[in-house]
Design a protein around this nucleic acid. Structure first.
Length: 558
RNA sequence: UGUCCUAUGGUGUAAUGGUAACACGACUGAUUUUGGUUCAGUUGUUUCUAGUUCGAAUCUAGAUAGGACAACCA
């Protein structure tokens, strides 16, 4: 354990750590200050977790701090429902922010700075329509054309901008633009829009404003106001950095700097908020927290621990090249964590009755079982045993293949923590399905070992049919059939790649009675089956378990 | 037919001009009262071409490939 954690200690640095260490060393900054800037227009997903771990992790590592700032500059998409869920998820992940801010807190300051830019001749009010602006912007290969309103006087711009703020104009009638360069190779420099008119109630500022700043104008300034030293974002903002720097330079304010990393992609999942929203709105899943969703709340409900998610984010590293992480990496992180912390218990998902012919049907005895072989402190528990049990239907075969270690007629196996049993006969129904497996047991093998030293190859799990409880179990498979759900032929969408069999609900599963008083999110390993987490839908008389993931299977791979 | 970013095993990530390594996966084997865990081992890598250098994954140039950019989104 010590050796392992020592080995895990990282001796190398990623590119962001290098930048920070250089900045610290050269005295460019005294201490670092990062921020996590979600727009409250959707739930956080595993890609955000990477960003959260980076921003909070880096600050923590170098003794700095991290702000939470909601990037709420577009009232038509944003809602307090989302700010609440975002805060909950960050906390659950195990991070706490130094300060909580909203871009909307800075609307007054931003407005003043816009006036300053107008006065410097660096911004103007444009009357062109949306279409005209788009047309005159040119393309990536051809330069744009100056707006006919580009050379209005400062006085006129000031008056018009004020009238925009007063609500004198309708949505889309006018915008405020930075006056930069309509033929710049970087499209972001072709007189980017700073303010647009939106007559919509904002979740925080209500109806105070009808003009709202665009991302490019608001983000860098917000960073600057908060003295953010390292503004870390994803690669697609790389091309915005020159503009980010331009506004800060023209305003002469605190020079925050932006650094970009490659966003997380995982096989068999989609990560865009728009698409996740669509899955929710169109009922492909039960909600943002559906256990098949890659959202933080979905993963939580699926049974992921925050530690496993943090470990995952640490393991995958960070760089500037595009990446596609195997879904199995996430599962590995979960298994690694749950193996240590989840108590083991026996449950039969697809039951078949097993009757022990030579065991007294009036007797019920108690046997001892280990709660967690990886953690002695978890102790032991009693499990009850009788002549009538349930075992997994898969654990019996009438005509077993070559390397089958489980029950078949004439074969002996160990019932975990109980006895050796040998199958002597079976019963079938009219259509030929096996209904009862009859066995004899070896009384001397109590606890699972025979005094004569004879070995059995297989050990199977079971529950006592006479006092087990029943519950519901939900099994999940990947939500999409394709590794890259977004990669589709013309005319198709990612929705065409949805896996129709991603949810399987099992009722009347048989459980050890010790599971009767569980609470949501409590986790167990059902021996030989996988890790399971108690779902929020659980009722006193119908506990629901979600399968987090299976155990690793090293046989039967085809 | 523009500008910018990127290119290391199957997948990720290191190596900061000096022995290409770590994790996951895959495959062997050992241990095992979970076909789990654990342990030991095997497999397999610098996109290409030229240049600089005693020496290049690393620096330079070109090529190729992938990605980003033409929202009154963030």
């Amino acid at each position: 354990m010590d050796i392992k954690s020592e080995n895990k200690e990282k001796t190398t640095r990623n590119f962001l750590e290098e930048i920070i260490e250089n900045d610290l060393q050269e005295g460019k900054v005294e201490t670092i200050h990062t921020r996590f800037p979600p727009e409250p227009n959707g739930y956080l997903h595993i890609g955000h977790a990477k960003s959260i771990c980076l921003n909070f992790g880096l600050a923590k590592k170098y003794g700095g701090k991290t702000n939470l700032r909601f990037d709420d500059t577009n009232p038509v998409k944003e809602d307090t429902e989302y700010v609440d869920s975002i805060k909950e998820d960050i906390n659950w992940l195990g991070f706490s922010w130094a300060e909580e801010h909203y871009a909307s807190d800075y609307f007054d300051q931003l407005y003043l700075w816009a006036i300053e830019l107008i006065k410097k001749g660096l911004a103007y009010v444009d009357d062109q329509s949306l279409e005209e602006i788009r047309l005159n912007r040119g393309t990536v290969q051809t330069p744009g054309k100056n707006s006919p309103y580009r050379d209005r006087t400062i006085e006129e711009n000031l008056r018009l901008f004020n009238e925009m703020k007063q609500g004198k104009y309708a949505d889309g009638e006018k915008v405020l633009r930075a006056k930069i360069d309509m033929s710049n190779n970087n499209m972001n420099f072709r007189d980017p829009i700073m303010y647009r008119i939106i007559h919509t109630t904002h979740h925080r500022t209500g109806n105070k404003w009808c003009i709202y700043p665009m991302y490019d104008y608001a983000h860098g300034e917000s960073d600057s106001i908060e003295n953010i030293t390292h503004s870390i974002c994803t690669l697609e903002f790389d091309i915005h950095r020159p503009l980010y720097d331009w506004f800060i330079k023209q305003l002469g304010i605190f020079p925050s700097h932006q650094y970009e990393f490659a966003r997380l992609n995982i096989t068999y999942t989609v990560m865009s908020k728009r698409k996740l929203l669509q899955l929710v709105k169109e009922n492909y899943v039960s909600g943002w927290d559906d256990p098949r969703m890659p959202t933080i709340c979905g993963l939580r409900r699926r049974g992921y621990t925050s530690e496993s998610i943090r470990n995952f984010c640490e393991d995958i590293g960070v760089a500037k090249r595009d990446n596609l992480i195997d879904y199995g990496r996430l599962e590995f992180a979960l298994r690694e964590d749950l193996n240590k912390r989840a108590n083991r218990v026996m449950a039969v998902l697809n039951p078949i009755k097993l009757v022990i012919d030579n065991y007294d049907e009036n007797v019920q005895e108690e046997l001892e079982a280990v709660n967690n072989p990886e953690d002695e402190t978890k102790g032991m528990r009693k499990i009850s045993f009788s002549n009538t049990l349930y075992i997994e239907r898969d654990d019996f075969m009438e005509n077993p293949p070559k390397k089958y270690f489980r029950l078949s007629i004439g074969n002996e196996v160990r019932l975990r923590y109980a006895y050796f049993v040998k199958c002597v006969s079976i019963e079938k129904d009219d259509v030929g399905n096996v209904t009862v497996v009859h066995c004899t047991y070896d009384p001397l093998s109590k606890g699972g070992n025979s005094p004569d030293g004879r070995k059995v190859k297989g050990t199977i799990h079971w529950v006592n049919a006479k006092d087990c409880i029943e519950s519901e179990v939900r099994l999940f498979d990947r939500l999409f059939k394709e590794e890259l759900p977004d990669k589709v032929e013309d005319g198709k969408t990612f929705l065409d790649n949805i896996n129709p069999d991603s949810l399987k609900v099992l009722k009347h599963c048989k459980m050890e009675k010790c599971l009767k008083d569980v609470t949501p999110l409590q986790k167990f390993q059902f021996e030989r089956l996988g890790y399971f987490s108690v779902d929020y839908d659980s009722k006193q008389d119908n506990i629901v378990f979600n399968r987090c993931c299976t155990l690793k299977e090293t046989w039967n791979k085809n």
